[in-house]
Amino acid sequence: MKRFAIGVAAAAVALGLAAPAAADPDTAFTNELNTYGIYGQKDYNAWIGKISCKRIATGVDADAFEAAQFVHAQLEKDTTTDQAWKFLAAGLRTYCPDKLPILDQAR
């Protein structure tokens, strides 16, 4: 009985310390943007990423160039074109990976 109680306690501790099954995509997106020197409000940046996906899906942005231009216009004035493209790529990877081929078409 004592071994059973120890086993149950060990299992409870292991479950309590286990990492969540799925990380918050908005946090992961923010962390990736930070590696590119892109900062700002987490929710706002996530909105830009998600709305970019919707604009591509609905044809508002016909190609990656238009999507990157939209993203660039939403970011701070000192954001570079390279950062806008990195933002777009990160957004597609995070929120709509099925739209990633639009980047290949831009090459």
Rank of each mutant, 00 (worst) to 15 (best):
A12W: 04
A12R: 01
A12E: 04
A12Y: 03
A12M: 05
V13L: 14
V13I: 15
V13Q: 00
V13W: 00
V13F: 11
V13M: 04
V13E: 00
A14Q: 01
A14P: 03
A14K: 01
L15C: 15
L15Q: 06
G16W: 04
G16T: 07
G16C: 01
G16Q: 04
G16M: 07
L17N: 06
L17V: 14
L17D: 11
L17S: 14
A18G: 01
A18Y: 14
A18S: 14
A18M: 14
A18L: 12
A19G: 09
A19Q: 12
A19E: 10
A19R: 03
A19I: 02
A19F: 09
P20G: 09
P20T: 11
P20K: 09
A21F: 11
A21S: 12
A23Q: 11
A23F: 10
A23T: 10
D24S: 08
P25Q: 03
P25W: 02
P25V: 06
P25I: 04
P25F: 05
D26Q: 15
T27H: 06
T27E: 13
T27Q: 14
T27Y: 04
T27S: 11
A28Y: 07
A28G: 12
A28K: 07
A28L: 14
A28C: 06
A28R: 05
A28W: 00
F29N: 06
F29K: 07
T30M: 15
T30R: 08
T30P: 00
T30L: 15
N31K: 12
E32C: 04
E32R: 07
E32M: 03
L33P: 07
N34G: 06
N34H: 12
N34T: 11
N34C: 00
T35D: 02
T35P: 03
T35V: 06
Y36N: 02
Y36T: 03
Y36L: 06
Y36K: 06
Y36H: 05
G37L: 06
I38N: 00
I38H: 01
I38G: 04
Y39T: 15
Y39N: 14
Y39A: 13
G40F: 11
G40K: 11
G40P: 12
Q41I: 09
Q41Y: 10
Q41V: 09
K42M: 10
K42C: 01
K42A: 08
K42H: 05
K42Y: 04
D43M: 08
D43E: 12
D43L: 06
D43I: 10
Y44Q: 13
Y44C: 01
Y44A: 13
A46H: 05
A46F: 03
W47T: 15
W47P: 00
I48F: 09
I48T: 14
I48Q: 05
I48R: 07
I48C: 13
